[in-house]
Write a protein that binds this DNA or RNA. Structure first.
Lengths: 221, 221, 221, 221
DNA sequence: GATGAATGAGTCTTCATTCAT
DNA sequence: TATGAATGAAGACTCATTCAT
């Protein structure tokens, strides 16, 4: 709640609440995202979402008609904008295959893995059983296109002889996995364990990139 | 409420000799595992667990004092036996580094990824926020040791010159990730998507093994 | 809660000279009447009342201090004016008993049964349990006087020998009932049933009048 | 609640609750009927229904899946049995038309107007706007057949010359109205007014019968 | 005055847990 | 031991009422 205790200075007037129609939905979505990611859908109370957003429970219902719609809004509003920025960077690039591939992984981490989209990934993996439609949507709009983009990058490298031939589609799946796993872990097991036992994301990412490029090295050259 | 106070969680480290009598319905644990994995802890009703196990709700309480203890029992009872079998196979082997490494991944998939332990992994990733102790337990007893085992195998290959030198610890993390991710996906997004859009586990595994070995190839030979 | 404590109900007997300024939206009262009659007091949302009247919810509170006062105002404002017009017609008449009696029923239907007062009747019958004071007010100001007026008309006919003697007071009750029932039905069951299954009010009224006069026929003449 | 205060005699054991699967539904329906009739559907809290039936709120949901189903069950369970008994009496009779007609009214009052079906009538009239299906059901199963039965009785009397000809269908409507109105009033306005201002049902019924028979008298005889 | 965003008490409904049978 | 009826605390959602704009 925003300052409902009577202010000490009688002349000044602390309003019991403010009117902030424009910013409320975003604040609510942010609060909901945090809690859904941390606790899961069922274990998150709307009361907590509201109070974390600094409003009362009733206010939440002015913007979202029920808990489920809040959930889908959280997913919808977070996915597309972030994803768009990531893809732009890759598609515009004219770097060489190896550099492009490295750029892909580093950009994914920067624009997805290290952002709140990582929370969305954890959330959807956790809730797929309860929200199959959302999971399917996420697969079709995020996972699949991202995998295809990666496959494209690899395929280009093979075609120009920089990379050795291999099962491109499968490799794309295999190589997305560590990034996604690390993103999910950061909202899950990693956040439960002492820092010194965790693998720092940067070292993880560097190693991943190095291993991918090593695995692609063309022995003919 | 789901217990989030770490100290409140009943003993995960209960030694195995404290197992209750053999007659205790393992069906309850199996039913609970299925439902917890599919729906998550909070969204699973004990009524459903009981009826899936073919008993009444009251009976459940004869064996588990509450929902939380059922949860920890599900985790405890599933992890250690399966894990043990997996490690035995690796530790006893006297194969060459490359074969041993390949064997490691294939054995992990056979004894973990393709068994109900994969469900446990999904469950713990999902519930880490609500059960940090369980997550920590899982990290310490499963993830960390497995990673160390993998690191050991890699390190041996490097020492004898079969593999090129690299950041062994980081590589172990990176290379566990695809297996774990695939295991988790099989209980999550994969189960929501049409079969033809999924990557078959075998092809995924084969590719992973091939890519790992390629990345390890020692250019000096 | 709906007020059931008799003393809590704001003044129904507020004299008419206390009416607020003419500009007060009669639309609010009209909207409230419609909705209260159709749905009942508790099931009617002030939001709906306001939007039906074409104003915002807040505006409603400029004219009525709360829901209950709106309810009593709806009753108060509708009853007395309409009733007055009906009584005038009867009291002034110098027709013969039979014609006067027929006139009574037809005027009642025209000035009450076929007007929005019929809705008030339905509303009060429905809400008597929650607003006993309002029900009592209605009984004292409307039902009882109307019954006495009818009794007077009958009694006059008996005295001059046009009608046969009978239990006048009871007959007045019995003969008011069909009119009131029909009025109530028109806001209740009738409005739910296909038109062809309903008894048209005019035929109902004609028959009622005919039966009353037949029952009063003096066999001595 | 049934005796949850610890009993004074330590040796005796007062159970916190009893198992009464068989009788619960009827008790709940009876409590619900009372409250729905008195307050209406929306203003009735399930908590009150439950506690009037001597159980907790949760118990109610063991027998009725929600408030609406409780409402429809109240209507359904009360209507048909009572109605059946009333019709039997009329259909079997071989009395003369006048006696039969008188019997009809007196039986209706005894089996409907003076029983809890009178409450149902008030309830349905009040809630027709919110439950049009229930209102329609009531019209088709109760009001219409009853009206037809009455019409039949009148028609028989006309055919044998005991009654004078008239608009039978309309008369049936008109003559049912006082009975229904009195039944409804007994749960509404009558229960709010001092006894001495009410018309006693018996006097009302006697007068009604007398007036009906007078109106039917055949002048040709 | 008029508006409608914000509030929070109240009600329906669910479900982990208890306990009479 | 096994059952499932009963409980009651908790959480989703509504809506009368307030008040900043």
């Amino acid at each position: 709640m925003t300052a409902s205790a009577p202010s000490a200075q009688p002349g000044l007037h602390t309003p019991r609440w403010e009117r902030r129609k424009e910013s409320r939905p975003a604040e609510l979505l942010a609060a909901a995202l945090d809690l859904f990611v941390e606790r899961g859908y069922a274990a998150t109370r709307l009361d907590d979402v509201a109070s974390r957003a600094g409003v009362s429970k009733g206010t939440l219902y002015l913007y979202f008609s029920n808990k489920e719609e809040l959930f889908t809004a959280v997913v919808r509003e977070n996915i597309l904008p972030l994803l768009a920025r990531f893809r732009e960077g890759i598609e515009r690039s004219d770097a060489e295959p190896a550099a492009l591939l490295e750029g892909f992984f580093r950009a994914w981490w920067a624009h997805v893995g290290a952002t709140r989209l990582s929370g969305i990934a954890k959330l959807i993996v956790s809730e797929a059983g309860n929200f199959p439609d959302v999971a399917r949507f996420f697969h079709e709009e995020v996972i699949h296109p991202t995998g295809e983009l990666l496959a494209l990058v690899i395929r280009r490298g093979i075609e120009c002889g920089d990379f050795r031939p291999l099962d491109v589609e499968a490799a794309a799946h295999v190589w997305m996995a560590p990034l996604v796993m690390k993103a999910i872990s950061s909202h899950s097991i990693d956040s439960c364990c002492p820092l010194h036992e965790q693998m720092p994301p940067q070292r993880f990412l560097d190693t991943h990139v190095e291993l991918v490029l090593a695995a692609l090295r063309n022995p003919r050259r």
